[in-house]
Simulated assay, not measured.
Amino acid sequence: MKRISILGSTGSIGTQALDVVRQHPDRFCVAALAAGRNIDLLVKQAMEFRPKLVSVETKELAEKIKLELPSDIDVLYGEEGVTAAAVHPDAEFVVSAIVGIAGLVPTLKAIEAGKMIGLANKETLVTAGNIVMKKAKEKDVPVIPIDSEHSAIFQCLQGEYPRCIERIILTASGGSFRDLTREQLGKVTVGQALQHPNWSMGAKVTIDSATMMNKGLEVMEAHWLFNLPYERIRTVLHKESIIHSMVEFKDHAIMAQLGTPDMRIPIQYALTYPERLSISSEPLDLVRISTLHFAELNFERYPCLALAYEAGRRGGTMPAVLNGANEAAVARFLRGEISFLAIEDTIAEVMAKHDLIAEPALEDIFEVDRWARHAAFSHHVTGEG
């Protein structure tokens, strides 16, 4: 029986992780759940899985939720609550699925406490990859990727020598607007952007998929997870989302991991590694699919991907600036304040204004993140609101 804590339990990854737990009640139990403001769903989760602790965003929400939960479930809030869930003594495995840089400190705390990490929070490695992976190595803590692309690479590398890797190839669906021209992108709406053709994800990640920033963040994440330089990390467009990523070896053999676009599969693999369990999902039928398509990802069509490669190569605080500016710009787009194309313009402008710190401490990363968000929120795009 593996005891787990889920940070971000009411989000897309968190709810699917709990579905995996639900399918295997003899293999998993829940020690702690941390959520934000969706207390109605959190109450249902807590009543079903009976964790020892739950955490919410504010004191007011904590006081409200206490009235609905049994007295044997501790209720905390804020950063202290999330940290308590991350380091809960009953938990041996922590699913880090809080969206944004808010997931960084709890993940670090879990690593320091010796917990095995299932990482679904890209920003943890994007903003502080050097610090996080150094701490994981120091504590001898496995960091197992949950993102479908990094899980695919992780699976392809089982039993292989890292020195034999030529490059890794991250596949991208192309997001909601993959068939639109740059001119057409100038007129798209928030509602259209949130309609992903293959995956069911949260709003922020779905927008990132449409701009291709999601793939850019994954490139930076892969750099830290697999210890490869950026010139050996390639991205390709693959509309079907059947091949989740590939590894090319020195002899030019390529290994790929295939499956239906169901996030429960990489979540379950992270939870059961190195074992595999059955799962109630549709099996992949290659005969029915018949054809798989691939195409180059053009930096001119997807400037956010180019910005991510640039930030990763420059290193230091630049990835944190890119991430903070992107989160702020996406929030402005979702509120209808700027256009879809203004997201990339905002990020580029904020990056251009930043004085890079080559070897940042954790405090520098958070300070730079605050600066980037403020700059992006106050940035005026010509013709925008």
Rank of each mutant, 00 (worst) to 15 (best):
A120R: 11
E68N: 12
D285G: 08
K66V: 03
E68D: 15
A328L: 03
V188H: 07
L217N: 10
N227T: 03
E123F: 06
H196D: 11
V236F: 10
H238M: 03
G159N: 04
G114L: 02
G114W: 05
S200R: 14
V21A: 09
V236W: 04
N214V: 06
Y302E: 00
T382H: 14
D345S: 13
P261H: 10
S148R: 06
I6P: 06
G336Y: 12
V56H: 10
R373Q: 15
K59G: 02
S176Y: 08
A361S: 15
I365A: 02
G81K: 06
P303Q: 02
K115W: 05
K215E: 05
K52Q: 15
S281M: 11
L7N: 01
E138C: 13
A210K: 07
Y161A: 13
L217E: 11
R3K: 14
V56M: 07
L69R: 09
F333S: 03
L237F: 13
C164E: 15
R373V: 00
R50D: 00
P70W: 12
S339E: 14
M351C: 13
Q184V: 05
A342K: 10
A352K: 15
F333K: 01
A328T: 02
E240M: 04
V105I: 14
T211V: 06
L334G: 05
G103I: 04
P303F: 02
R3N: 12
V82Y: 02
I207L: 04
L53F: 01
D72M: 00
A210E: 03
T382Y: 12
A113F: 04
R167A: 04
E337C: 01
E231A: 08
V126A: 09
L362R: 04
V87D: 08
V141F: 11
V350M: 08
L69F: 07
E310C: 01
M263I: 08
V95P: 01
S278N: 13
P266E: 04
L271C: 11
A31M: 11
L277S: 03
T15A: 10
S378F: 13
A348R: 15
G202M: 05
R167N: 12
A253K: 10
F294L: 15
G78H: 11
D19I: 06
L307F: 12
A256T: 10
R167Y: 03
V330N: 06
V188R: 09
A329V: 03
D369Y: 07
I117A: 09
G312N: 05
F28K: 09
G114N: 05
I267W: 03
R27G: 00
R301G: 00
L362P: 01
T171V: 01
D90W: 06
I233M: 04
F154G: 07
R264M: 15
G14Y: 08
A46D: 07
Y302A: 01
E248M: 15
M201Y: 04
V82A: 14
S96T: 13
P283I: 01
Q23W: 09
M1V: 11
K204D: 03
M246Q: 09
I357K: 15
L170C: 07
V94H: 00
C304M: 15
G324L: 08
G11W: 11
A253C: 13
L225R: 11
R3Q: 15
A376S: 06
G259A: 07
A32Q: 05
A152L: 06
L228H: 08
I242M: 00
M1Q: 09
H196M: 09
L69H: 09
D345N: 11
L18C: 12
S280E: 14
L286G: 13
T346L: 05
K250N: 12
